[in-house]
Computed example of a mutant assay.
Amino acid sequence: MDGAVNHEYRTIDVPVDGGALRAGVWDPEDAGPDAPTVLLVHGVTASHLAWPFVVERLPGVRVVAPDLRGRGRSNGIDGAAGMAAHAADLTALLDALGIHSTVVVGHSMGGFVSVVFAHLSPERVSRLLLVDGGLPLDVPAGLSTDELVAGILGPTAARLSMRFADAGEYLDFWRQHPAFTGAWTPELERYLAYDLVDDGAGAFRPATSYATTADDTVDMNTGDALPAALAGLQHPTRLITVPRGLQDEPPGLYAPEHLARLLSEYPAVEHERVDGFNHYTIVMSPSGADVVAAALREELAARV
């Protein structure tokens, strides 16, 4: 389901620093140019095809979702990544589509990107919806890059160095993933198959490189962009967290004690803890998308 019910799906390529940014656009059927628009920003090793479940639940809403640089069909962009670089790419994407301001939704690393984007280009953002990401993670100081990536992402990062004979072998690899037990769908298969690219040696690899993932993971956890953005947070911001992580393990990315400290530090952030989901299924499952789409419709209704 690249497209979604009540939407027409297309892709565009937008010139950015170092190459071209691919994005998916879902135009609502029978909707004019004044249809509300939302910008959806995916996670650290994902792509724009993480979002069709949510799109399907947004009739009448135009949805724009990029493959962030280094991911999906944007993986040929040269140059460093990092939150500020992604934010600049989002500005170029909105410019290309003639969108002045929009509600922005960020999942996982996309939440960090969205917070920085709102700080660097405040006039382009009306409201922020962060889904299990965007506020600092609880990671020890002094870790090496590899330790930081492994500690946060675990097998999600390890697979980036793996090679696969074909899409079938890649899907078999993911079928064993604990996060998707009971949540396997055709939409998920299409999302995963899109991730594969030719490695040039007769096999296939995930589109996202380990180096890109490492650069972004370090920046969003130890760089200056996120602290500055959070210190200057000025947009209405809503955070949804879930109790299980990337391996379907408790307590998830935001343990209750750490989360309480964050919410005390950033009291303007409206928080909702949603039981029954892990870091993936809150976006990439029908019931998780129900939660996110309902929250997003509320954010659209609350726009000034």
Rank of each mutant, 00 (worst) to 15 (best):
residue 80 A to Q: 06
residue 81 A to Y: 15
residue 105 V to W: 00
residue 79 G to F: 04
residue 84 A to Y: 00
residue 103 V to I: 09
residue 88 A to F: 07
residue 89 D to C: 03
residue 76 G to Q: 09
residue 108 S to M: 04
residue 118 A to I: 05
residue 77 I to G: 00
residue 82 G to R: 08
residue 101 S to C: 11
residue 93 L to F: 13
residue 109 M to C: 03
residue 81 A to W: 03
residue 111 G to A: 14
residue 95 D to M: 14
residue 105 V to Y: 04
residue 112 F to K: 01
residue 116 V to A: 13
residue 109 M to E: 04
residue 91 T to W: 09
residue 106 G to K: 12
residue 94 L to N: 01
residue 75 N to W: 08
residue 88 A to V: 12
residue 105 V to A: 04
residue 85 A to K: 00
residue 84 A to H: 01
residue 99 I to L: 09
residue 106 G to W: 04
residue 98 G to V: 08
residue 86 H to P: 08
residue 102 T to S: 15
residue 75 N to P: 06
residue 95 D to W: 11
residue 75 N to H: 15
residue 99 I to Q: 02
residue 115 V to M: 11
residue 106 G to P: 06
residue 108 S to I: 06
residue 86 H to C: 02
residue 104 V to M: 06
residue 96 A to I: 05
residue 115 V to I: 07
residue 114 S to I: 10
residue 100 H to Q: 11
residue 96 A to L: 02
residue 97 L to G: 10
residue 103 V to C: 05
residue 110 G to R: 12
residue 89 D to S: 05
residue 94 L to R: 00
residue 75 N to D: 11
residue 94 L to Q: 15
residue 88 A to E: 15
residue 96 A to G: 07
residue 109 M to Y: 11
residue 92 A to N: 05
residue 117 F to S: 10
residue 108 S to D: 15
residue 91 T to Y: 03
residue 90 L to Y: 06
residue 85 A to Q: 07
residue 76 G to D: 13
residue 82 G to Y: 11
residue 98 G to N: 02
residue 81 A to L: 05
residue 76 G to L: 10
residue 100 H to W: 06
residue 89 D to V: 02
residue 109 M to S: 05
residue 113 V to Q: 08
residue 82 G to K: 03
residue 93 L to D: 06
residue 118 A to M: 11
residue 109 M to T: 00
residue 91 T to P: 00
residue 102 T to Y: 05
residue 80 A to T: 10
